[in-house]
Simulated assay, not measured.
Amino acid sequence: MRVSRRMSHRSSWVRRAVLAIAMAMLAPLGLAAVHAAPTANAAFNPSGFDFWANDANGVPLKSRIFRAADGNTARVVYALDGLRARTDLNGWEIETDIANALTRANINVVMPVGGECSFYSDWEAPSEFGFGSSSGSSQKFPYRMETFITRDLPNALAARLGFSQTRNGIFGLSMGGSAALTLAAYHPNQFSYAGSFSGYLNISAPGMKEAMRLAFLDQNGYNIDAMWGPPWDPNWLRNDPFVFAPRLRDEGIRLYIASGSGIPGMHDQPRSFVDLYNTGNAMGLEAIALANTRAFQVRLASLGYNNVTYDYPPVGTHSWPWWADNVYRMLPDLSAHIG
């Protein structure tokens, strides 16, 4: 009985640990973002406008466009959201003021709206089961986000606004950070620059697939098998930055790779129990992102790839003010490598 209790306790601890990782993946774009918003009026930027384009399913999708201060159409960057991407506004607009900084640097900003849990991928099938949520967990059509961002949306932007479809930049946080590298690796004719902030760049690492599955289920019941198939499907490897890193090297994509330490700093000042809980989740999540990012750095070094800037501040959790700081530090490098 003593052995059985020990084994049962260990099994229970493992389950709790995996669930904690999964919950941490959700926290920054939901609960943890509550205390991270820098200002209450950051949720809508009147300098932007709605831009609609149909995806490969014929479904109209919204993006938010912010025009470069000098009116050019050659310098374009795409800003990708995280796991809990909303359908009204992109998280970068809701939680930060980066659009104003980028447009002042004469960069046009494209913020795709929506794509909750999508990893900005073309899914293999619709997610056909859910918890009755109206947010899309029981889908009529599979996501076609990769095709949308690399074909449908840039074609529409070129036709209606004259935006360049070459030497664009792309960056994102968490889910969007991983996706930014994927889209740049497979579409180098469009993207010359990619930035990842707190991204999951080694998703084949032990425990990552299981954590992602639980996170998707918790986020309105998405079936992750609909995305890249079951865990043994080659599509998982196709979308793992650690695996496809040689493509980034061979295509000469300029990279900006960042992750915080998980140690709270000036942006982390919990004032309530909920804030404290969110900060704890953001700390744990950033520690996982840091481990993924450091592994990816070693991978690039083993490939002899040095066309990259690494940004590892000594403090920083998985929350919006830290990601905004990443953009401000990245901006001169981004500006020099697009357009």
Rank of each mutant, 00 (worst) to 15 (best):
R238G: 04
F242Y: 15
F129A: 06
G221I: 13
N223M: 09
R5F: 11
G195T: 11
N57F: 07
A301E: 10
R64N: 08
V110E: 04
Q219G: 05
D218Y: 10
G130E: 10
N281R: 07
S192F: 09
A211I: 00
A74G: 12
E251N: 14
M227G: 01
L29M: 11
P230K: 04
I257Q: 02
R238C: 01
S178V: 01
A156L: 08
F197Q: 00
I94Q: 01
A85S: 15
A43G: 12
L285R: 05
A22N: 10
Y78I: 15
D233G: 04
N41Y: 03
P230Q: 01
M25R: 08
R271D: 02
Y186P: 02
W322R: 03
N41G: 03
G195K: 03
M330F: 13
P154V: 10
M266F: 07
K62L: 12
P46Y: 07
V315P: 00
A42T: 08
G162V: 11
F131S: 07
I338C: 01
G172W: 06
I253L: 04
W13I: 11
R167D: 11
N281D: 05
I65L: 10
F242H: 14
L83Y: 11
A301H: 03
T166I: 11
N235G: 06
S121R: 14
L31D: 08
A291E: 07
S261D: 06
L102Q: 13
A180T: 07
L300E: 03
T309F: 01
R104D: 14
N100C: 08
S4V: 15
D325N: 14
W232K: 09
M212S: 00
G221C: 12
P264N: 05
G260W: 11
P313T: 08
A215Q: 01
N155P: 00
S135V: 12
D88A: 13
G280W: 00
P332A: 12
N57R: 01
N45P: 04
Q165G: 06
G252F: 04
G177W: 08
A101P: 03
L276V: 02
L290I: 06
A40V: 14
W322G: 04
A53T: 12
D240M: 03
F141R: 09
A32G: 15
